[in-house]
């Protein structure tokens, strides 16, 4: 089975983000494999190891530099990578079309896994768009995935810790949640071995992704800074408790 993992090259969550111009950021910060995609890669490799004749292919849309993220996926056990190179920013409608086209061109997906969201855009929708384009069933925030024959049995986490169980026919699309597994970080030999693995680069212009009437793009970007000046509440426990309740009642008006 060909297992495709869609990965994204994202700024580190602790990076300092500087806005440039109207709608860009200074990309001179550390970028890495989107944390939720680490769960996706780990799960794909786990399934590959239990199914003979399987292959894990990591696919990514990004700038040339995104090869680093694909190399991370390869070090975690993916067999090969495909990078669709584009310098332009892309939103999910386009991203899904690009990834769908490149997967369909490369092989026959038996299973597609990606992180339930990316930490930079948090659009939470690319997996559903890929599913719709292929007409494959989709589940997101998946915390358990079992493959039995041509059926995927998944647990998807809802709010308050409730869990739904679904059965989906393969091929299907999975949005990996944090509870799915513990990412298997590469050892030094894994990293060395991954350097020999192939990353195929395709220019976006070479792909025919069709056209959509719908579009979305960032028109403006501003630092989200809410300056707070803390006032200290002092006194003994009784006094502090009274003051907190006064604030809840009179200022926040929640009681």
């Amino acid at each position: 089975m060909q297992i495709y993992v869609c990965v994204k090259h994202v700024p580190d969550s602790s990076a300092v983000i500087t806005v440039l111009g109207d709608n860009q950021i200074d990309e001179n910060v550390i970028f890495l494999l989107n944390p939720y995609d680490e769960h996706a890669v780990t799960e794909a490799v786990k399934i590959k190891n239990s199914l003979p004749d399987s292959e894990v292919i990591a696919v990514c849309l990004g700038k040339d530099d995104a090869e680093k993220t694909l190399r991370s996926a390869l070090a975690m056990g993916a067999d090969r990578g495909i990078l669709v190179v584009s310098d332009a920013p892309h939103e999910s409608i386009e991203i899904a079309r690009v990834l769908k086209t490149v997967m369909a061109q490369d092989g026959i997906p038996g299973l597609i896994i990606t992180g339930k969201e990316s930490i930079d855009a948090k659009g939470m929708q690319t997996m559903f768009r890929i599913g719709a384009l292929f007409d494959f069933p989709v589940a997101t925030n998946v915390i358990r995935l079992d493959i039995e024959g041509d059926i995927a049995i998944v647990d998807s986490e809802l709010s308050g810790g409730a869990v739904d169980t679904y059965e989906m026919s393969l091929p299907c699309v999975i949005g990996a949640g944090r509870g799915l597994n513990t990412p298997k970080y590469p050892t030094f030999p894994d990293v060395v071995k991954s350097k020999k693995k192939v990353v195929k680069k395709i220019a976006l212009a070479e792909l025919d992704i069709g056209t959509s009437k719908a579009d979305m793009w960032i028109v403006g970007l501003e630092p989200l800074v809410l300056v707070r000046k803390p006032k200290e509440i002092t006194g003994d426990t009784d006094e502090v408790a009274r003051e907190v309740i006064r604030i809840l009642r009179e200022e926040a008006k929640v009681i």
Binding site: S13, I17, I25, K122, D215, W217, I218, L221, L224
Partner: peptide, 16 residues
């Protein structure tokens, strides 16, 4: 919000 809650983004959408 975009970029780990560090920026506020205005996003234009088009479509039917």
């Amino acid at each position: 919000s975009r970029y780990s809650g560090k920026t506020s983004a205005s996003i234009k959408v088009t479509g039917d």
